[in-house]
Every structure is written in structure tokens, then in C-alpha cells.
């Protein structure tokens, strides 16, 4: 059970990078064009899930291990919270966009709205990483009937 046929594998090899890049693009330009952290995170998770479906679990886990994905989840939450706390530290208002007030950028450029791209990156990690982890755990679940005739779950994942 090492992945799908050669057709699926070839197509995946061509499109995986484009899906990944599109996710990053949607995340980074979320304040200028349609998109944002939510869409970008789900698209990034989709690119890794495509790898899992086409090549098997081991290949995807060699690209992004479960431990890294769990750390990325926490990093996303910390980026979001710490950025919000900077506003509280400077002006005593939680979620205050002080960077925009102090150094306003040019409108319609990539640097134009202070902390909002940073929030978008945090949300992207926060949404994408746990979805990938959930899919891997769901895909790794196998059911076996033991000697007493009861069903039990077997996780093929190695415990850290």
C-alpha cells in the first residue's frame, strides 16, 4: 500500500509545488487581494494531504513530521498572541495595530498594514498544521480483530 498509480504520482509531482506556492501567496497577500490566513492554511494542508494520498504516509511524514507539525501549530498560536500583546505593551490596548500607526506604509503595497500580514501567517499555521495532523492520525488508524473477537485500534505512528 505505497501510494497510488504512476499517473497520480506523476501529476502530483508536477502540481504539488504550485499548490504549496499558491497557499503561501494567498496567505502573504491576504490584506491586498481575496484570501487570507484561513484560505492559505487550508490550501497548505491540502498540498500535504495530496502528498499523503499519492505517495503514502511515510513520504509525507519525511517532508513534515508529526512533531514539527505540532510545533508549527503552537508557533502559530504564539505568533498571534504575542503580536496582539505588543499592542497591549505599547498603548495598553489589546489587538492594537501600533506598527501601522507608527510606521504607515504605502497603500496597496506588500508592507501596508502593520501587523496584519503577521496575524495572517499565525492564523495560516494555526489552521493548516492541526488539519494535517488530524488527517494523518485518521489515515493511520487501522482496525484489527483480536483473539477475543473484539475490535481495537492500531496506530502505526511511532510515539515520541
Amino acid at each position: 500500500m505505497k501510494g497510488m498509480t504512476i499517473i497520480v504520482k506523476t501529476i502530483t509531482r508536477w502540481v504539488k509545488l504550485f499548490i504549496f506556492l499558491f497557499g503561501i501567496y494567498v496567505t502573504l497577500t491576504g490584506h491586498l487581494s481575496p484570501g487570507g490566513g484561513f484560505a492559505g492554511g487550508v490550501i497548505l494542508a491540502c498540498s500535504f494531504i495530496l502528498l499523503t494520498l499519492a505517495y503514502g504516509k511515510e513520504y509525507a511524514l519525511s517532508r513534515l513530521s508529526l512533531k514539527t507539525a505540532k510545533s508549527l501549530d503552537s508557533i502559530g498560536a504564539l505568533i498571534f498572541l504575542l503580536t496582539a500583546l505588543i499592542g497591549m505593551w505599547v498603548t495598553n490596548v489589546f489587538f492594537d495595530n501600533v506598527l501601522q500607526k507608527l510606521f504607515p506604509g504605502t497603500d496597496f503595497m506588500l508592507y501596508s498594514s502593520g501587523f496584519i500580514p503577521l496575524y495572517n501567517i499565525g492564523i495560516c499555521l494555526k489552521v493548516g498544521a492541526p488539519l494535517f495532523v488530524t488527517f494523518i492520525v485518521m489515515a493511520a488508524m487501522r482496525i484489527r480483530i483480536n483473539d477475543k473477537g473484539e475490535r481495537e485500534i492500531i496506530q502505526e505512528e511511532e510515539e515520541e
Binding site: V42, V127, L131, T134, M138, M141, I143, E152, I153
Partner: peptide
């Protein structure tokens, strides 16, 4: 996005009940 999370939780419950 919250809907996706809650439905993933529901699917996990279904699979566990099937086991």
C-alpha cells in the same frame, strides 16, 4: 473554518463508535 473543525470532531466520534 470552525464548521470544518467541529465536523472533523464528529467524524472522529463516528469512527470510534464503529470501532
Amino acid at each position: 473554518v470552525i464548521g470544518l473543525g467541529t465536523i472533523a470532531l464528529g467524524i472522529a466520534l463516528c469512527m470510534r463508535l464503529y470501532v
